[in-house]
Nucleic acid binder design. Structure first.
Lengths: 107, 107
DNA sequence: AAAATATACCTTGACAGACGAGGTATATAG
DNA sequence: CTATATACCTCGTCTGTCAAGGTATATTTT
């Protein structure tokens, strides 16, 4: 049983930001980590992930830089900005509130 | 602070079904009740509501009938079907699971 | 050596649900 | 007689997800 894309919607950005709070990372890794963390219950599809990266960067919530791999495929790393940290806190509060509201409605 | 449409998405149908578990109702009333229940934190916009009704009816989860108002505007009532009750239970299980999964990711 | 798999990036176009803006009609309050 | 509240509805836009496709490098299997 995995999370539907309609429920996922609205949480993608927060999920990514949360992950970047721990450490800088790159697309492929983030994807794998999220699946692992949730026992495959949540998978951010690549296209979804990359469009979210673009939104987050445009909003100033993340910054990107290329890794210095001398071997293997190049990696584009992402790191969270101070604005990103604040945005994350805001997302998180919204989520806590939404959780209560929806619980209230689904009796 | 009200719930965003991206978070709402994916819950609209469950919210409506849940409400219809209590009693048959009609669009305008459902709308008002949901706002009241949540202290205006959740509002299903009319267009959203009606498109959800159409999906739910098409899926066989609700049935509709006209009220017999002799006075005032006519009302189209909705009632939940047995399939609708089952669908609701399924939505509810999905929600409980999704809640845990998202909580796991937003640390 | 060739083929398959894993790692790693990316774009395009389709789709679906939420909603703003608009419409209709009846009843009541000022 | 003009608002406001009740009650229904549709059309078109917007946005986020994702299927399907692409590129390139490294390793493992056949």
């Amino acid at each position: 049983m995995s999370i539907t894309s309609d429920i996922l919607r609205g949480h993608t950005e927060a999920i990514i930001l949360s992950h970047l709070l721990e450490q800088d990372s790159y697309g492929y890794q983030i994807n794998k980590d999220i699946m692992k963390k949730t026992d495959n219950r949540c998978e951010l599809k690549e296209a979804t992930l990359y469009s979210a990266f673009r939104r987050l960067e445009q909003a100033g919530y993340i910054r990107t830089y290329w890794g210095d791999e001398t071997v293997g495929a190049r990696r584009r790393y992402y790191s969270i900005t101070e604005e990103g940290r604040q945005a994350y806190q805001s997302y998180k509060r919204d989520w806590e509130e939404a959780k209560l509201t929806i619980d209230q409605l689904l009796k």
